[in-house]
């Protein structure tokens, strides 16, 4: 095993030439997303460069406050992303989502770093990258869960109205939608666990191997992070939906889905 080869900046910049292939195919196929391709590449480069600079600074000057701030910003961003796609939700539902993402995220991050890795919860080298993976997956999961819940209740509005008119309890009417959305949100994570190691080597493991970590150590990390991700997705989606659906009806048992 050898340590990772440092990329020479000039050599590195050649990789952008690959985008010409994408550009060429997009032109040929008349895909009108050239602007997006440029914006996306540019944003990615700038954002990652900034993250690199910030991380370099934090690693060189480790301070609990930096680590905590970085994680909080990540959590805030995850919450913002989910809520910005669901602007019509009522305020309490949004609070439920924010609370669920924050609490389940923090819980799993702390458990992973302190108990599994055995490092300080303020160690930026472990906390920051692991938090990124955990919060990123929680965000996607909650986004998918909420989307599924809202779409299915919209499609089945007549079923909800009919049951309510006949005197069924809102809880009993809405819970099947909640459970189905939770299932839908969990499936991608479960499916990726099924294919892991056969179809592709997952990102974190690849990164660790590239940087010289022994494969057996890398797989232990990978297994641990997958279980952590599965748990955080389950917890955050469960929390968001179970706290959230209760905000959709009032004390007169009237349902208002928006």
């Amino acid at each position: 095993m050898q340590q990772i080869v440092e990329l020479n900046l000039l050599q590195f910049s050649i990789v952008y030439l690959l985008l010409l292939i994408v550009l060429f195919i997009m032109k040929k196929a008349k895909i009108d997303q050239v602007k997006l391709l440029f914006v996306a590449s540019l944003r990615m480069s700038v954002q990652l460069a900034l993250a690199g600079l910030v991380l370099t600074y934090i690693f060189q000057n480790p301070h609990p406050l930096f680590t905590v701030s970085y994680v909080l910003v990540m959590i805030a961003f995850a919450i913002h992303r989910v809520l910005s796609k669901n602007k019509e939700l009522n305020k309490k539902f949004k609070q439920a989502i924010a609370l669920s993402l924050a609490i389940s995220g923090l819980l799993i991050i702390m458990f992973f770093v302190a108990v599994i890795v055995g490092q300080s919860v303020f160690n930026p080298q472990y906390v920051i990258p692991l938090s990124g993976m955990i919060m990123g997956n929680a965000m996607t999961g909650v986004g998918l869960g909420i989307k599924t819940f809202r779409e299915s209740t919209r499609v089945e509005q007549h079923r909800i109205d009919s049951l309510l008119n006949l005197g069924a309890r809102p809880k009993k009417i809405l819970l099947p939608f909640v459970n189905r959305a939770l299932e839908t949100a969990l499936l991608p994570t479960l499916n990726s666990m099924v294919g892991m190691g056969i179809v592709a080597l997952p990102g974190m493991m690849t990164g660790q191997i590239l940087s010289g970590t022994l494969p057996m150590t890398a797989i232990l990390y990978q297994i641990a992070i997958m279980i952590a991700i599965c748990t955080v997705v389950c917890l955050s989606v469960f929390g968001s939906l179970y706290l959230g659906y209760k905000t959709l009806y009032n004390e007169r048992d009237q349902i208002n889905l928006t």
């Binding site: 007549h158 109205d161 009919s162 049951l163 309510l164 008119n165 006949l166 005197g167 007169r252 048992d253």
Partner: peptide, 23 residues
């Protein structure tokens, strides 16, 4: 009716809505 349990009321004053819903 604000003094009556909403669920109990709906079972006594039952509404078959305009939209038919069958499973």
């Amino acid at each position: 009716i604000e003094q009556i349990d909403a669920i109990a009321l709906r079972r006594q004053v039952l509404l078959a809505g305009q939209q038919v819903y069958l499973f």
